[in-house]
Amino acid sequence: MTRRERNWLLVAPAGAWFLVMLVLPLSFVFVFSFGERGPAGGYVPAFTLEQYANLPARWTAFKNTMVLAPLGTLAALLIAYPLAYQLAVRTDPRWKTLLLVLVIVPFWTSILIRSYAWIFILGGQGIPALLAALGIEDVRLIYTPFAVTVGIVYGYLPLMVFPIYVALDRLDKRLLEASSDLGARPFATFWQVTLPLSVPGVATGCMLVFILLMGEFLIPALLGGGKVFFVGNALVDLFLQSRNWAFGSAVAFTLILIMLVTVAIYMRLIARLQVRRDDVAIM
């Protein structure tokens, strides 16, 4: 067996998996999106652009997704970075593992249950009741974009923390010493050394969270209460409730396209910032 053949053999299982689980379904979605809804729902083969022409009917879902997914990603980043920094740079190595485990612990419970907890916290008997006791009346939190943002930041925070933690943990501490030695104040060191060198972690974290958020439907369903819905909710509705597979496929395919374009632009931007740091001699 040549080296080339061996390499092919090694990627064969993953390749087969991708073909069956990704390319095939996506092809169906693509084909379905040009079809029509059958009289009793489902799909009737056809070739029409009608479904795509109908997209504006779901404009709100697209708008919510495209506003709240980047916003949620940004909010998660702003909260995750200081946390990851504290863990990676400031924490005694003996405590690091324990604290990292604490970051994952929420994953041990279903997101459904945790979101219900937020319904209570943000609902009438939670924070608004507390504020009312302080004299601030009529604050409405639950079933708002704010509630959805809180929910997604809470749910996806660990996914943001980990890549940033890894990048900061890998950072050679002597670079920080060198910066300080050369007269940079702590903030200047952070701005000129720590932050640029953690860009790879930030990029990975943002990408992970953003892509997952684009497809999110559970949190908007629970904390948005049917008022703030994502494309994901529209899809659930179209495929399971109104059984309009053709239109659902068009919506799904559009979402995928938007995601691909956004990620491509994003990768371009990051590649410019990105630092090649692997083969720097660090003795």
Partner: peptide
Amino acid sequence: PVNMVFQSYALFPH
């Protein structure tokens, strides 16, 4: 008012 040349260089890779 002191500068150091590090044993490991500690050059900024970026």
